[in-house]
Design a protein around this nucleic acid. Sequence first.
DNA 1: ATTACTACTCACCGAGTAA
DNA 2: TTTACTCGGTGAGTAGTAA
Lengths: 233, 233
Amino acid sequence: MSSSTINAQTWKGLFTLYKLAELGACSRTVKVSTEYLAQKMGVSQQTASRHLIQLDESGWIKRIITPDGCLIRILDSGIAELKKLHSGLQIIMEAPYPPSVTLEGVLFTGLGEGAYYVTRDRYRGQFMEKLGFDPYPGTLNLKLTSEYDLKTRSELETYPGIEIEGFKDESRTFGSVKCYPVIINNKVKGALICALRSHYNSSVVEIIAPSFLRRRLQLKDGNKVKVEILILP
Amino acid sequence: MSSSTINAQTWKGLFTLYKLAELGACSRTVKVSTEYLAQKMGVSQQTASRHLIQLDESGWIKRIITPDGCLIRILDSGIAELKKLHSGLQIIMEAPYPPSVTLEGVLFTGLGEGAYYVTRDRYRGQFMEKLGFDPYPGTLNLKLTSEYDLKTRSELETYPGIEIEGFKDESRTFGSVKCYPVIINNKVKGALICALRSHYNSSVVEIIAPSFLRRRLQLKDGNKVKVEILILP
DNA sequence: ATTACTACTCACCGAGTAA
DNA sequence: TTTACTCGGTGAGTAGTAA
């Protein structure tokens, strides 16, 4: 989790706070009548009054009532809420990639090669170092079928991932691999690995995890598996 | 007016749009179930569903319903709304000064010196050039009394204004003056002028306008006058 | 599993008005 | 003038459920 997310209740209060901020109440005490604020908000005077009371009660503003208007100052906690919204939008507008994408595929049994590759020490060491877990010796193979999943899989290539370097041993070359941290079926953390082997085309993805996923999640061939892929910021 | 301001109706729709954007729907088509979105929003599945329908109808999102979720993409018009909110917050958070401040003072009759100064050609020319109007020969004197107004008046010194340069003629020196565009009683455009004469302290402000304000606004000594001062960006 | 319709509840909004 | 109370109507949210 990056930061606590904005909920529906907070959102409602933020509208009045935003309008007050537009009137300069972030940096100074402003005098506004509820009628004037109401006009700026496009609501009735009574509604504006009630909203001010609620913001006051929630501690977002300081409010002093005078015979000809309210003196309003947005407090630090209110400014913090506006900042949270602003930085949230900043991230959304500037982010070149989505924060996460979700794939769904159908589980099938592969040729068992996954276990061989995953257990090569030069790979395994990097998995532990860069992913933070020692992978179970085996991979979960998922077949993608829907147009959406295939498109998402291809877009994934352009997103940044964790690079696992290739190497050579006496007999052959092992290619480099790109990984993405994932959450399988909303429960178990693991990683999606790309291009470990070339003979599967992009309609197949392979998942590794610290535990034996088939048992952990009670999975059988033909089951639909959901994988939430976390894109690095 | 800088740009069209956000209204209460728009604000409600923006919450769902914001949550969709958090899921990456600005840059790609995302698959979300109404249940999943509802959980992110902290509302029921039905409410999330209805919000999606409304956003679709308003043209902010493209929405394709599939048997296992909705494919959602935020359209340009929706992105424009998010951008409007973002840039609005940007301005609020970064602005060193409020966009405007309001003063209220009580009208009184001065010594008639205002007319003399305002009609000096070297001043008058600059007023026409820099304020865009030929000032009526006379000033409206307002006495500030409330703590709020006095504080605001003193803060005004630190805000940027329009500089009217001083000059010398054969006999004496005329000091430079700082002006702020104002709206008097929510109706008439004019300018507040500071330090035209030094023998009024900061509890008095003087207003000039293209017309005779006392007649135009039916003002008499002792009337309360509201002045909205527009701070330059 | 989905989406979204129909009721029903309730909270919110605004008119009237007191202070 | 203000703020903000009461109260009645309505729009928004939810539960149940159909498709």
